[in-house]
C-alpha cells in the first residue's frame, strides 16, 4: 500500500462540546449549501442555522460563535452523531472549520465512513467516559484533548487516558496515509476475474 495522503498519528487541541444526541447532517451543513461542485470553503457554513439566525446575525450563545471555539480541533457531541443524509459535505465542513476528531457516544454508519475517508476521526467513547467528558467540555470550552491513533487512546482534559476502538483497516490507512481508492484499483485483476466468472 503506497502512501499518498498526509498520515495521521497523534495530535492535541482545544475541544468544544455540542451536548446533543442525534445531530443530523442537515444541521452540520444545511442542504442549501450543497449546490457547490467543490469540497472547499464549507466550514464557513458549518452548523449555519445554529450559528446564525434568519437575518444572518450570529447567535451569541452558540458555542462555535464563542471565542473559546477559535482554533478548536476536537468536537465533543452526544449519541448517534451524523445521522440522516449521506452528504460528505458534513465531514468536509467539519474539517474545513478545523476539526480533526469528533468524540461522541456513537456515530451513524455513513457519516463514520465519510469522516474516515477525510482524515476526520470519529471516536466513539464508552458511556462512562463520554458522559463526564461532554459535561466537562460543555462547562470548559477550549479544554485540551489529545488523540493518539497509534495507541488508540484519547487524553482527557484531566490528564487521564481512555482507550477507544477503531476499525483496524481504516486505522492502518490513516496511519500510513494510504489512499483507499488506489488500494482498490490495485485489485483490478481480481475484479476482472470476478466479472468474468458471473
Amino acid at each position: 500500500m503506497s502512501a499518498t495522503r498526509e498520515p495521521i498519528t497523534r495530535f492535541e487541541g482545544p475541544a468544544v462540546a455540542i451536548a446533543r444526541d442525534n445531530i443530523d447532517t442537515d444541521q452540520i451543513i444545511p442542504a442549501r449549501f450543497l449546490k457547490t461542485t467543490t469540497r472547499a470553503g464549507l466550514g464557513a457554513n458549518l452548523f449555519a442555522d445554529w450559528r446564525r439566525d434568519a437575518e444572518g446575525t450570529p447567535r451569541a450563545g452558540f458555542i462555535l460563535n464563542r471565542p473559546e471555539a477559535a482554533g478548536a480541533r476536537v468536537l465533543v457531541a452526544g449519541w448517534n452523531f451524523g445521522c440522516g443524509s449521506s452528504r460528505e459535505h458534513a465531514p468536509w465542513a467539519l474539517v474545513d472549520f478545523g476539526f480533526r476528531a469528533i468524540l461522541a457516544g456513537s456515530f451513524a454508519d455513513i457519516f463514520r465512513q465519510n469522516a474516515l475517508k477525510n482524515g476526520l476521526l470519529p471516536i466513539a467513547l464508552p458511556a462512562d467516559i463520554h458522559g463526564p467528558l461532554v459535561a466537562h467540555v460543555a462547562i470548559r470550552p477550549g479544554a485540551v484533548v489529545g488523540v493518539d491513533l497509534v495507541r488508540r487512546t484519547v487524553r482527557l482534559p484531566d490528564g487521564r487516558e481512555a482507550a477507544f476502538e477503531v476499525d483496524a483497516f481504516a486505522r492502518e490507512c490513516l496511519l500510513a496515509g494510504v489512499d483507499e481508492i488506489g488500494y482498490v484499483l490495485a485489485q483490478e485483476a481480481a475484479i476482472a476475474r470476478f466479472e468474468a466468472m458471473r
Binding site: 460528505e88 483507499e180 481508492i181 482498490v184 484499483l185 485489485q187
Partner: peptide
C-alpha cells in the same frame, strides 16, 4: 445503500466498495 462522495468515486473507478 447510500454512500458518500469518496465512495461514489471508488465505485465509478472500480465498480467495487470496501
Amino acid at each position: 445503500f447510500g454512500i458518500g462522495t469518496s465512495e461514489v468515486e471508488m465505485v465509478l473507478a472500480s465498480q467495487c466498495l470496501l
